[in-house]
């Protein structure tokens, strides 16, 4: 198990907190809520060690489009980068609906 922390600048407020996903095989849960300092913070706990660079790529790309000041917590159970991106997108959509 490995812990990864990433921070991003943000411009928009997050309307409401949401929870999506499950810590099941090949899946992850995402907890997205407004952060308290106007910046975005991501805290990842993953079952697969040694993929820090890939996590940073996935999150860099996500935050190139998403500007929410979100505190995101991820519990990952071996999801592929594609699944991670989809779950993040799902969380954003639900937080805006």
């Amino acid at each position: 198990m490995e812990m990864i922390k990433l921070d991003y600048p943000a411009e928009e407020t997050v309307p409401r907190r949401v929870h999506v996903g499950v810590v099941g095989s090949g899946d992850l849960e995402v907890l997205l809520e407004p952060s308290n300092d106007g910046q975005a913070h991501v805290s990842i706990r993953t079952s697969v060690d040694g993929y820090g660079a890939i996590w940073k790529n996935v999150l860099d790309r996500f935050f190139s489009r998403y500007k929410g000041a979100a505190a995101i917590e991820i519990n990952d159970f071996g999801a592929t980068p594609g699944i991670v991106a989809l779950r993040l997108q799902q969380a954003v959509e639900e937080s805006q609906s």
Binding site: H19, L31, R45, T46, S47, N75
Partner: peptide, 20 residues
């Protein structure tokens, strides 16, 4: 619910990712 963050304290000690 998950935002109360009552996850297992025992799983991370054993290197297993908890669910919130």
């Amino acid at each position: 619910g998950p935002f109360d963050r009552l996850h297992s304290p025992w799983l991370p000690m054993q290197g297993i990712v908890p669910q919130e």
